[in-house]
Amino acid sequence: MIRMQLRGLCAAVLMLCAALPAQAAPKPLKYVLPEAARPVAGGRSVQVSVGQAELGSNINSTLGFAMVAGGAVGVIIEAGVGAERAQRAQLGITPVRRGLMDFDADQLAIDSTKAALAAMPWLEGQEPAFSRDATLFGKSDFLTAAATSQVAYFTYVYDMAPDFSSVNVSVGIAIASKAQAKKGQPYTRLLDKNLVYGQRVSSVVRLANPTTPAENAQRWAANDSALAKKALALAFTKAGDLIPRALVVTDADVARFNAAERRTIGPLGGKPMEEGPGEVLLFNPLPMGLVHVQTLQE
């Protein structure tokens, strides 16, 4: 009996190992919006969501390794290590957050979206509505209440790299249709596979000559977080510039980008779309999408 329970436990661990990578695999998104699908009668409602209340911290995950190396035990160890790493990240970011107390990142997200909408009148985007709720359910409620047949969502995340070498602003762009995807489950309209369009753009502003995480964090926090403010303003503006570009990417563009040789800048990599002095725009398969990397001039 004990042997049978052990066999069951082993099988459970194997099932867990098999199940988790499958859950983590990104589903294909419709990241090309065909020209014929661009206009829509009545225009589109627009929602800007920022699902955080202040600058986010970021930590590396070793979950995949934990599952392979230790199965369920590995997961428990990973949880402890992750908590410790998250606490360290919070310690580093708190002084930066203090200086950003009166820095209105929500307004930057709204302004970036407005600038993007102005640059693509074909989207017929309405005045953006702001929400702190960036969950599928919150978005689904907004879609249900919308007076238009489609809604364009711009979901912002702003945080710092785990080693505090950069400030990152990323925007999930999604267009969803009001039509029900699954009866009784309205949120399924927001699932990747049911979106009219889905893409991500990121703007990364790196410190010039980053060193240790502690020193990097101090540089961002110095003078009332002056560098962090400057980098965030740059990153939000660039993210707003990238949105209209992402929405008009064609299949031919994707083929052209993919033919280029892959480049790596720090922890980031992708196919270069264009390069300038001190900056590069990379194209990646989702979930990364378009990534603009620039170095902060101090």
């Binding site: 049978m4 329970q5 069951g8 436990l9 661990v13 867990l16 369920a72």
Partner: peptide
Amino acid sequence: MRSAPFLATAALAASLLTAGS
């Protein structure tokens, strides 16, 4: 018949991690 507890244990354990999400 013997496979019932085997599968039940496996399914229960597998559900522990997936239940949260």
